[in-house]
């Protein structure tokens, strides 16, 4: 039994070491781009309107570049993330956001999965109560 325990533990620590080494050895986020991290975070949530299912962060199209520049400028002007999303929504609609906002249109979208999950959990609970 002790043998079992030790061999399991040693294999597990080997695995953890491998994964940690990989990530420790890599430098984290040496961003030599011209765009700041925050810009890219926001850009990843904006849909590229002239591409097939890409965000403007991934896309190299002209529109994507212009929108990224715009986001950068707005950030420098002091706007926060939500204000930038609002700015874009006012001109392009909710369609341009890859993370759907929470409003009357999308309330079902956001809550239905969790409602189903809750019902499932209640069912499990009731099942075992018997």
């Amino acid at each position: 039994m002790k043998k079992q325990f030790c061999s399991i533990l040693s294999i597990c620590f080997l695995y953890i070491t491998i994964i940690s080494n990989i990530t420790l050895a890599e430098e984290k986020n040496t961003q030599l781009n011209f765009l700041t991290n925050k810009t890219r975070e926001i850009a990843q949530n904006i849909k590229c309107l002239v591409c097939q299912n890409q965000s403007i962060d991934e896309s190299n199209s002209e529109l994507a570049k212009d929108l990224k520049k715009l986001i950068e400028e707005k950030l420098n002007d002091g706007l926060d993330e939500d204000e930038i999303y609002t700015f874009l929504r006012e001109r392009y609609g909710d369609y341009i956001l890859l993370k759907p906002p929470l409003n009357t249109n999308t309330i079902l979208l956001w809550f239905l999965p969790f409602i189903i999950l809750v019902f499932s959990s209640i069912y499990i609970f009731k099942f075992f109560k018997k």
Binding site: L49, V50, L63, D66, R91, Y92, G93
Partner: peptide, 13 residues
């Protein structure tokens, strides 16, 4: 020339 006016109008192409 910059494309900024188009963005204000919600133009995407």
């Amino acid at each position: 020339s910059s494309g900024k006016i188009a963005i204000e109008w919600g133009v995407y192409g």
